[in-house]
């Protein structure tokens, strides 16, 4: 018997009023892999993320983590939102954002101990933003902003990492720095789920792939799933892709 999958999605349906975003989605993500979720706009990728992180309950179906039914609290799950999701004018520094990653364990009124500060420091070093610590986040480049959010996730810790389009609007060096960090997490046995847009890097980045367009078109190891036929079906002629 192998260890249970990190994430099991069973027959999940999610809708907004009359618009169905996800229809009977069933997919399994094994522990310790780097998974891409790919599909056109409106395919329900963000909705799936909302379901995984618990921001929205599925209308039907079931989610299981490590073999157990999902409860409201998911402390093992770490979420990195889309870069556009926050107000960049917010009066907070890069370090301030990273420190939020420790809020769950530090609590409301206790001060940050030396140990907690060390975790914040290590996370900032891992993505190379220590020099930017006291900048207000609006004064950072897109790539730097994404690194800040990744650092927050790193210092939060967890077994499953969920990232919503981490490469949107970032420079090439940030993209490869982020990938290095994600591969490092995978090698430590963490499970990493990434909503991704750029089909040209899919093969290089992900062990496994989920092709989504309201239903799961295909899921499994990247080399099996990433075929011209599957992409055609996922994008329904919206893009012309050449897969050699």
């Amino acid at each position: 018997m192998t260890s249970p999958a990190a994430i099991e999605v069973r027959g999940v349906q999610m809708a907004y009023d009359e618009t169905v975003a996800l229809r009977d989605v069933t997919v399994e993500i094994p522990t310790g892999c780097l998974v891409g979720v790919v599909g056109p706009n409106g395919a329900g990728k963000s909705t799936l993320i909302k379901g995984l992180v618990g921001a929205r309950e599925p209308d039907r179906g079931e989610l299981r983590f490590f073999g157990k039914p999902a409860t409201k609290k998911r402390p093992f799950l770490t979420y990195v939102p889309q870069r556009g999701a926050v107000d960049w004018d917010f009066p907070i520094t890069a370090e301030g954002v990273v420190r939020q990653g420790r809020f769950r364990s530090v609590g409301l009124l206790t001060r940050f101990s030396a140990e907690e500060r060390g975790k914040v420091e290590a996370a900032m070093e891992a993505v190379d933003i220590t020099a930017l610590r006291s900048r207000q986040i609006g004064n950072l480049s897109g790539g730097q902003q994404q690194r800040v959010f990744l650092a927050r996730a790193l210092c939060q810790g967890g077994e499953i990492y969920v990232l919503d389009e981490p490469f949107a609007g970032v420079d090439a060096s940030t993209e490869s720095a982020i990938m290095d960090v994600l591969r490092g997490l995978r090698d430590e046995g963490k499970t990493v789920v990434v909503v991704h847009h750029d089909l040209s890097t899919v093969r290089e980045y992900f062990d496994r792939l989920i092709l989504l367009n309201q239903v799961v078109v295909a899921a499994g190891p990247t080399e099996e799933v990433f075929t011209a036929e599957n992409l055609q079906e996922t994008y329904r002629g919206q893009v012309a892709v050449v897969v050699e």
């Binding site: 992180v53 618990g54 921001a55 609290k73 998911r74 402390p75 799950l77 770490t78 979420y79 939102p81 999701a85 926050v86 107000d87 917010f90 907070i92 954002v97 939020q100 809020f103 769950r104 530090v106 409301l108 009124l109 927050r152 939060q156």
Partner: peptide, 21 residues
């Protein structure tokens, strides 16, 4: 008392929810 929770839920509500705020 609730300063940290107010701050993080104002800044990034989805994240706040995810860390149990």
């Amino acid at each position: 008392i609730f300063f940290r929770w107010l701050a993080v839920s104002s800044f990034d509500p989805k994240f706040a929810m995810a860390i149990g705020v």
